[in-house]
């Protein structure tokens, strides 16, 4: 079957890959580009574990084709830290135990960063609605919501 050649940017770096026409972006990130931070939970848009940014918009990479990202800008959880320095969201998730098994964490981080980039001072209710597309079977959510609110405060220079 004819594989497609795709040129794109991932976390700011130019990247080229070959993919099957109907292969998902999630599968290419994980299996071809070895960017395994992005997780697969449900594969049908319900859990958010596969969250990435595509041209500045938060999407589920399990419901996007790799072929669609030709010429686009993809950002994954691997691009959130600056070198060895964790992003405040990552640090607060660790310090406040906002994860247990961790499979949902990359998706929460990407979605929470998308929220805070657009709304630096969200209410708790806004955080809960913004993260409603991310499911966690372990934490009970409260610690995640608190970590996001504390990160927002730190990013605003209030903590």
């Amino acid at each position: 079957m004819a594989r497609r050649h795709v040129s794109t940017r991932v976390n700011g770096e130019p990247v080229e890959f070959l993919c099957e026409p109907h292969q998902t972006l999630l599968d290419v990130l994980r299996d071809e580009l070895q960017l395994t931070g992005t997780k697969e939970g449900c594969g049908t848009g319900d859990c958010g574990a596969c969250s990435v940014m595509l041209d500045g918009r938060l999407i589920c990479s399990c419901l996007a084709l790799a072929a669609e990202v030709e010429g686009a800008e993809v950002r994954t959880v691997e691009g959130i830290a600056s070198g060895n320095e964790l992003h405040p969201l990552q640090r607060h998730f660790l310090e406040e135990a906002a994860l247990q098994c961790g499979i949902c964490t990359p998706g929460f981080l990407v979605a929470a960063k998308a929220l805070l980039d657009g709304n630096p001072d969200p209410t708790e209710r806004e955080v809960r609605f913004a993260l409603a597309g991310n499911l966690c079977r372990c934490t009970g959510y409260d610690k995640i919501i608190r970590a996001v609110l504390d990160s927002a405060a730190e990013l605003r220079g209030e903590a």
């Binding site: 848009g45 958010g48 595509l54 918009r57 999407i59 996007a64 979605a111 913004a130």
Partner: peptide
């Protein structure tokens, strides 16, 4: 329609 992720598409 759906979550913020779904809204992106």
């Amino acid at each position: 329609i759906g979550s913020e992720q779904i809204q992106g598409r």
